[in-house]
Design a protein around this nucleic acid. Structure first.
Lengths: 224, 224
DNA sequence: CTCTGTAATTGAACATGTTCAACAGAGCAT
DNA sequence: ATGCTCTGTTGAACATGTTCAATTACAGAG
């Protein structure tokens, strides 16, 4: 055990497989990349890849965890610089889009299964619950630190609603073929305007019945 | 060519393969069913299944077309009996849930790929555009025939918005594990209340800025 | 140093969606 | 009848995610 070597041989092998896989995923996409290629590129036998990663999807999962840690750090650094709710929310989204940009091609593999909560890669699966919760917490923080006045009953659900909006926007971005994903940029801007507008109006007394109807739906979705 | 036989031999073979596949899909689900089983059950060789259907997914597509024709007929029959917007919308949803009920198990295959518009089975793919448009038309009809007063600018987008809501509800129903899908029933009810409520309030002069913000988002999504 | 058990590693084997070259049969022209 | 073409049919072969029994490497016990 060399004291300068803080990674065991096994960890080094695992990391080599992960790197090879992510590089191939980025280059050729998830579906196009075969586990045999990954193994070959990593300089190991096919079986070794499966010794370290339960499945091809598990590798994507490892990337996702890695990515979230990195993005949370970036967000925590950038968030305090912004004061308004809109700017703070945009900060979070900007970090994500920027981080995901080089991975667009293979991130589709993750997002393609979005709708099936049984698929481990789905943002709604139990396997991704941890990621989901940490993500929503970022939005809670973004709202906290802004001057926005949010009605109490709404406040409880707002982070999850914003997380949902984020998923929609990322999905849109993913398949946005316009140059530089210009359409996504427009949509993000309009969406944030809408969010701010809705929050502002949600406090109006006249809006009571609508607020109630919205919250009824939210509660029905999240299970009473 | 016997005149009493309005199906050629080929059509009969194709139909036998489709029936066998759908039965197996219903019984064991989409993923669990192998093309070899389908071929065996239909009494043909593996290759024949691929002669008639480009892929396993194509078979699901055939089912979807069949299903839509049947459901449109059911809706056209039931719709005139209802007057209020809520009741008319619920009629459409009820028909769908009832029709899909025996197919819950394998419909997941369709819905699991919902989010990927490149997947032919996605409700957002170009392959399903026809189905999507016909579906939205049903919602347009449901709104038309009700007494609901819809602002002009909103009216244009309402069918698509309702179609979207429907997709969300079907998705929820799909993975709703509560007995008798009770949670979905509650969600449908609350959602329809919300829709009616939103339409009512959308006409208020005070709501002008919100309406504008919503429509901006809708336009950004559908591409200006 | 030798032995022994655990961790790593290997590649053959398997399951299954898909492809394809070959073959069969039916209708039709010569 | 013979040959030709088009449709339909076949099953072997292929690609690839995954499994697994066998093998090797190695760290620690004696």
């Amino acid at each position: 055990m060399n004291s300068t070597m803080n990674t065991t041989k096994a960890e080094e092998t695992r990391s080599r497989i992960l790197s090879a896989a992510l590089e191939l995923f980025r280059e050729h996409g998830f579906e196009q990349t075969t586990m045999r290629e990954v193994a070959r590129e990593a300089g190991v036998a096919l079986g070794s890849a499966y010794y370290y990663f339960e499945s091809k999807e598990t590798i994507v999962m490892a990337f996702y965890h890695q990515a979230q840690d990195a993005m949370i750090a970036l967000i925590e650094e950038a968030l305090p610089k912004q004061k308004s709710l809109k700017a703070r929310l945009r900060t979070i989204l900007d970090v994500k889009f920027q981080y995901f940009e080089p991975n667009r091609k293979f991130l589709g593999a993750l997002l393609g299964h979005t709708a099936d909560p049984r698929n481990p890669l789905s943002p709604f699966s139990k396997e991704t619950r941890d990621i989901r919760d940490k993500d929503a917490a970022q939005f809670a923080k973004a709202v906290e630190g802004s001057g926005a006045k949010v009605p109490d009953d709404l406040k409880q659900h707002l982070p999850n609603l914003l997380w949902m909006l984020q998923m929609g926007l990322i999905l849109f971005w993913m398949y946005d073929r316009s140059p530089g994903q210009k359409r996504t940029a427009v949509l993000v801007d309009k969406s944030l305007d809408l969010v701010v507008s809705l929050i502002k109006f949600s406090g109006l007394p006249l809006m009571k019945p609508v607020r109630r109807a919205v919250l009824d739906v939210v509660r029905a979705v999240s299970g009473d």
